[in-house]
Nucleic acid binder design. Structure first.
Length: 558
DNA sequence: GCCGTTTTCGGCCCGACTGTTTTCAGTCG
């Protein structure tokens, strides 16, 4: 039994197998089964080795007889037969190719079987040599798609999205606190500053006995490959392959150590060196004649000129409702009533129910008949738990800028959120013409996730933002900061520009379940990085004022 | 491969868009 194999390591292997099954052209359902099982295993609280000993692997959701056998093989040998057989046919690295937009499983397999291309590097070489275009199996057009896709991937930072890193950080904080309740631990670095992507995770621990703390760290299973790099420095690897840098300090020097480890480099440089031996961050800032600066604002710029405004910035308590949420009517996991109750428990007084429109078939989009039926249920549930429900929709924007419902249907809705989910690779002219048409559509109240980016996975559209913001300010259309950690869109820099241009901002979770509202902390952090105040954010307004705003836009909500 | 008040087989992941096409395969959301 390989006791050292972590749940994360097992999950990674199952996930790689799932992805390889897709490329191999196996059943998409079988591939998904492996990916689902991997997700389930990664989050499983108990080491799988112990479950395997008890013969309880199939108690994990998504793990049946087949995958339980694979896991037992992985635990015993570090691999499993089906995976070894598959990798003999197709190298694992071929999966890399499918990261290129426009290259799916079939094309990746074709590239491998006809040209032996088994990685992005090999693909780039073949492209340089002109092999792609010369090969009869692949057209010149394909070569161009590949070239553009490779360039987009090379532009990626290779950093970890915040939404992947923070849950890992929180799990580690909890695990350490259980092991060493007498020590104090905090997250530091870019994750504490709510940067959209992070390079590694930094932690600071205050301890009266550094050696004891180091020994306790060695006992935490989720921190692998630990090394002591200095008297009070420990490094290691956390789930997802994220590097952890841990600084251990005395309680008396906690403030100095935390401020240093939090950064940013530009912020520290502007401060001009953190004094040693201060017990709190407040004490650190006092020496510079400053109040405590919240981590998300430590960018090395405006915080030194605008610190007096900090108490006025938006906080999570100022959020009074949301305009973008899904239910089981389309691709959500909770009913209208359950979503309303979850909203109420967050102190909201208003919630827009905005399921997908008809052309987004994969998400179970509603045609106008089902939309009308849904309104009956929304109206019946209105004021459930004291929350005003708006019968809205997240409406697809077609490639020509027209919307997915006719004017009559749109006019009957309480709120219309418009989204571009497809055709984001259109050239700037087309994309802008399309966006302008949406912004000038009198039925549209809010533009959801305006750029369409998926962090580290897909770049946003090539919009002319200054022009877009000017039009949005003119039409009064609100622009969303989507709090989903996979999106964080608008980005804080764009949100700040939009607000400066006079645009109204709204921060929404795009919740697909009752737990989906938890990501609001990300959205608020982004809004704070953009130096936004509640007045500038539509869903911080009192309910009556929001309803007046909607009414003034021709909305019928009562 | 997993799952189940739809329960041991058959559904799960549908439909639009694009161009690798010219009657349909591949990709994407």
């Amino acid at each position: 039994m390989t006791a050292s194999l972590s749940n994360d390591a097992i999950a990674r292997l199952l996930e790689r197998h799932g992805r390889l099954l897709v490329v191999a052209g196996e059943s998409a359902f079988r591939a998904r089964a492996f990916e689902r099982a991997a997700e389930s295993v990664r989050l499983y609280p108990e080491p799988l080795a112990r479950l395997a000993e008890r013969g309880e692997l199939t108690s994990i959701p998504g793990v049946g007889e087949g995958i339980a056998y694979a896991i037992s093989q992985i635990l015993a040998t570090g691999a499993f037969p089906a995976h070894e057989e598959l990798t003999r046919r197709i190298p694992e690295s071929v999966v890399e190719l499918t990261a290129i937009p426009g290259v799916g499983a079939k094309t990746a397999l074709k590239l491998y079987s006809t040209l032996g291309i088994d990685s992005l590097d090999a693909l780039e070489s073949a492209l340089e040599a002109g092999e792609i275009a010369r090969t009869m199996a692949l057209s010149a057009r394909m070569a161009e798609t590949v070239r553009a896709g490779l360039a987009a991937i090379r532009r990626r930072t290779g950093r970890t999205p915040l939404g992947a890193a923070r849950p890992v950080a929180e799990a580690f904080l909890a695990a350490f606190s259980r092991a060493r309740p007498q020590d104090r631990i905090a997250l530091a670095g870019s994750a504490r500053r709510w940067e959209v992507t992070i390079g590694d995770l930094d932690f600071v621990i205050a301890s009266d006995d550094i050696d004891d703390t180091v020994a306790a760290l060695a006992e935490i299973p989720m921190l692998e490959g630990q090394a002591r790099s200095g008297a009070g420095e420990v490094t290691g690897q956390l789930p997802g392959g994220i590097r952890a840098d841990i600084t251990i300090t005395s309680p008396a020097a906690w403030g100095s150590a935390l401020a240093r480890a939090t950064g940013s480099a530009a912020h520290l440089e502007r401060l001009g060196g953190i004094p040693d031996g201060l017990a709190s961050e407040e004490a650190v800032y006092v020496t510079f004649g400053l109040p405590w600066i919240p981590p998300e604002l430590r960018a090395g710029g405006q915080e030194f000129a605008r610190w007096r405004e900090i108490p006025e910035l938006v906080t999570i308590d100022a959020i009074n409702g949301e305009f973008h949420a899904h239910t089981t009517w389309s691709d959500g996991g909770a009913s209208i009533v359950d979503m309303a109750r979850a909203a109420a428990s967050r102190g909201y007084t208003l919630l827009g129910i905005t399921d997908h429109s008809q052309s987004l078939g994969v998400a179970g989009g509603l045609n106008s008949e089902r939309l009308a039926a849904q309104r009956l249920e929304i109206d019946a549930a209105d004021m459930t738990a004291g929350v005003k429900l708006l019968a809205g929709a997240e409406v697809e924007v077609h490639r020509d800028g027209t919307l997915d419902y006719d004017d009559e249907t749109l006019a009957a809705l309480d709120v219309v959120v418009a989204s571009l989910h497809t055709g984001l690779r259109q050239p700037r002219e087309e994309l802008m013409a399309r966006l302008e048409r949406v912004l000038r559509n009198p039925h549209v109240d809010i533009i959801a996730h305006p750029s369409g980016r998926l962090i580290e996975r897909r770049e946003g559209g090539d919009f002319d933002w200054d022009r877009a913001f000017a039009i949005a300010a003119e039409t009064g259309t609100a622009l969303e900061i989507n709090a989903d950690p996979a999106r964080l869109d608008l980005d804080p820099t764009l949100a700040e520009r939009a607000s400066a241009a006079g645009c109204l901002i709204t921060v929404n979770c795009d919740a697909h379940s009752t737990s989906g509202f938890a990501v609001m902390e990300y959205g608020v952090a982004m809004a704070r990085k953009a130096w936004l105040k509640p007045e500038q954010i539509l869903n911080c307004w009192p309910r009556e004022r929001i309803l007046e705003w909607l009414a003034a836009r021709g909305r019928s909500s009562s």
